[in-house]
């Protein structure tokens, strides 16, 4: 259901990561089965209820990418594409990043990733890895009522994030998974109940600090990492975005280029 659009791996080809979700062979297997994530035979620390298999698989895949893709600057941020340009949304958990990302994806933006933005510092291109979008708690209802046709997994209770459901990405996003985009808009989303949707100015120095902080390998890449964050921020127009209503938000993102120019040119 979730993964129908993904191509099967060529068994004689090269796979970046070999992962497994296995049942834990214990007595609980009979009435309350548990699972564990394996990376090429190496077990992860946590044992989880079997209902959490899909979120665990996605978490595991994100870990694989974040921990091994040092040829990119890896940033914890959602990324979507329109007309060849990338919209990057770094944000700590709870900021409404995934909800916004899901809504944009349903409104014609191509999902590149809801978790990991991969910046190729040699070509200046952004790569994603489109996976099902992980919706948490209230955003599950928000998205399923705003987009009744959307396909998602049954929500499951997790210890770390509360309720989690995975939202299926559109076929187009999966088919164009390897197509890069040029970084263009860097937006820090924030959900605030009852507020009017608006873009606001965000200085590039602050954005630099935030990207560095939200990056998995900024420190590992050393000077390269510093330069990568610098060139990424330099290529983008930066802004904050606060919203409560998704429709309002969507209409502002329609004209993102004009809005961002406006707030960027406003005097601080």
């Amino acid at each position: 259901m979730l993964y129908g659009e993904y191509e099967l791996a060529d068994m004689n080809g090269f796979a970046d990561f070999h992962v497994e979700i296995r049942y834990v062979p214990n007595l609980k297997r009979l009435f309350d089965p548990e699972i564990r994530f394996y990376f090429d035979g190496m077990p992860s620390f946590s044992v989880l209820p079997a209902q959490q298999s899909f979120p665990t698989l996605e978490w595991g895949l994100n870990w694989c990418v974040a921990a091994h893709s040092h040829h990119y600057l890896v940033v914890h941020a959602a990324v979507l594409e329109r007309n060849g340009f990338a919209l990057i949304m770094p944000a700590p958990p709870g900021s409404g990043k995934s909800t916004l990302c899901a809504a944009l994806m349903m409104n014609g933006w191509r999902l590149m990733s809801d978790e990991l933005t991969l910046y190729d510092r040699n070509t200046g291109h952004i790569y994603g890895h489109p996976r099902p979008v992980s919706l948490k708690n209230r955003s599950i209802d928000v998205i399923s009522s705003a987009f009744p046709d959307s396909i998602m997994t049954t929500p499951v209770m997790t210890e770390s994030k509360g309720m989690v459901a995975l939202l299926k990405p559109p076929e187009s996003a999966v088919v164009s998974a390897t197509v890069p985009a040029k970084p263009r808009w860097l937006v820090l989303p924030k959900y605030e109940q009852g507020t009017e949707a608006r873009f606001e100015r965000q200085g590039s120095a602050r954005t630099f600090a935030l990207i560095a902080e939200q990056s998995f390998n900024y420190d590992l890449l050393g000077l390269d990492g510093f330069n990568a964050v610098g060139s990424l921020v330099d290529q983008c127009i930066c802004a904050k975005f606060t919203y409560s209503d998704l429709d309002e938000a969507m209409s502002l993102f329609q004209n993102i280029e004009a809005h961002l120019h406006e707030v960027a040119s406003a005097t601080p």
Binding site: F14, D16, H68, S69, H70, H71, L220, L221
Partner: peptide, 21 residues
Amino acid sequence: VPEAPKRHLLAAKFLVERQHD
């Protein structure tokens, strides 16, 4: 070296160089 495995090797190289620093 084909691109796909090369990316893993380069990632390891970056990691090791940083460890050496």
